[in-house]
Amino acid sequence: MAFVSKPKIIAHFILQLDIGGLERVMLNCIRRMQQQSDVKHVIISLTTANDFSQDDLREKVAVHCLNKKAGNDWKLHFRLFQLLKEIKPDILHTYNLSTIEYHPIAMLAGVKGRIHAEHGRDINDPKGLNKKHNFLRKLMSFFIHRYVAVSDELFQWLNTTVGISKTKTQLITNGINTEFFNLPKQPSENIRFANIARLSPIKDHKNLLQACQLLQKEHDEMPWTLTIIGDGPLREELALLTQEYQLNERVNFLGARDDIAELLTEVDVFVLSSIAEGIPMTILEAMSASTAIIATEVGGIPQVIEQHKEGILVEKQDAIALAQAMAFYLKNVEKAKEHGKQARDKVLNSYNEQRMVKDYLACYEQLL
C-alpha cells in the first residue's frame, strides 16, 4: 500500500525506547511499513533511548528524546510543541498511558491525525480500574481520532470500563514475522524452559522462581533447566533469590539479547508468569518457533492460547499451579512437541505481521 500524495510522516511517541515487547512491535511495524509504503517515520521518546538492534532502521529513523524529568515537567510540553512544529508529522501515534496526555499539544501543533494504542497495563493498575487514569483516557477522546487495542480484552475494556465510543476504537492484534521465527529445534536430553521478559515487577519472575523451587523439590531427579532472557531493575534481586532457592544449576540469566530466534531453537517450553499483559510479542515469537506455552491467564493471553492445545494457562501469582504445569511437560515430552506444532499453526493463521502492518497502514490512511 502506498500513499498517492507526497510522503507522509508518522511520529511514534513512546515512554522510552528500550528493550521490550512494545518497542519490538513498534520497530517491526516501522520496518515493514518502510518496505510497503513511502511513509516516513520518526520516534519520540518521552524520556531516553537505548541503542536498538534493528540495524536496517538506525540510519533511516530519527529518534528524538525529550528527557522528561521525574515528577511534573511542565517545560516538556513546550519542548514537544516545538519538536512537532519542526518535524511536521501528519500523524502522532502514542503508546500506553504515559504519552496519552500530550494529544492536545499535538492538536495545537497542527498534527492532523492522532492515534493512541493500548498494549497492556502497569503493575500499579493491572486490571485497568484506576479512576484517575481512566478519566484521563476518556478526556483525551476529545483530541484522539482513533484508539487501538491489541487484544479483545483491551478492546472491551476501552469500550465498557473507560467509556470510549466503539466508533473510535479498533482492534489490531500483534503479529510477527513467522518466517524469521521458524528455525529448527536443537535436540537435547533436558527439558528446556525459557522466559523472555523485562525483569520488572509486572512480569512476576519471583513467582516463576518459586515455582522452580517447588519443581526442584518434587522432581529433583529429572533433567530440566530454565533460561531467563531479559534485563531490568530486578536483575540483581532475582539473581540473589535464585541463589537462596539453590537453583543456580537450574536457572541461567542471559541478560538482554537480540538473537531471540536463535535462542528459541534451544527452548522446549516457554513460560510467562506476568500479572498483566496485552498480547505479548514473546509468546507469539515462541509459538512461531513451535514452542509449547505455559502462561498466566491474564489480558489477551487466553485469546491466543487455548487450554491444552497450544499450551497450559494458570492463574496469576500461583506458584503451585505454575510448577504443576511445568511438571506436566517434564512427564509428557511428546505433548510439548504436539502443543508446539499447534502453536505455530495458530500464529500462521491469526497473528501474521503482514496483516498487522496492513491494518495500521489502513488506519493511518483513513485519517489523512
Score class of each variant (00 low, 15 high):
291 T>W: 04
235 R>S: 06
247 L>T: 10
219 H>W: 10
275 I>V: 13
211 A>D: 04
274 S>P: 00
231 D>K: 04
321 A>N: 09
271 V>W: 06
252 N>S: 15
218 E>I: 09
329 Y>D: 01
311 G>V: 05
266 E>P: 02
306 E>N: 07
218 E>V: 09
285 E>W: 12
233 P>N: 14
256 A>M: 12
323 A>N: 04
209 L>N: 03
268 D>A: 06
214 L>Q: 14
290 S>P: 00
306 E>F: 07
240 L>P: 03
322 L>W: 05
209 L>Y: 04
256 A>D: 11
302 P>K: 09
243 Q>H: 15
254 L>R: 12
218 E>Y: 13
223 P>C: 11
297 E>P: 00
221 E>A: 14
277 E>W: 06
277 E>P: 01
309 K>N: 13
276 A>F: 06
214 L>E: 13
278 G>W: 03
279 I>L: 10
298 V>R: 00
332 N>Q: 10
228 I>N: 01
332 N>F: 05
259 D>R: 11
230 G>Q: 01
306 E>I: 07
318 D>I: 07
226 L>C: 05
262 E>L: 11
329 Y>W: 06
308 H>W: 14
221 E>S: 12
279 I>E: 02
280 P>L: 06
297 E>Q: 11
299 G>E: 02
251 V>H: 06
258 D>P: 00
274 S>F: 01
266 E>M: 14
209 L>K: 03
236 E>S: 12
250 R>F: 10
296 T>W: 08
293 I>K: 02
326 M>N: 03
252 N>L: 14
227 T>R: 07
301 I>E: 02
239 A>Q: 12
244 E>C: 10
240 L>M: 15
269 V>A: 05
231 D>L: 03
288 S>V: 03
221 E>Q: 11
216 Q>V: 12
283 I>Q: 01
265 T>V: 13
330 L>S: 03
258 D>I: 08
293 I>F: 07
322 L>S: 04
307 Q>D: 08
227 T>Y: 11
211 A>Q: 03
312 I>F: 06
267 V>N: 01
284 L>T: 03
322 L>I: 06
330 L>P: 00
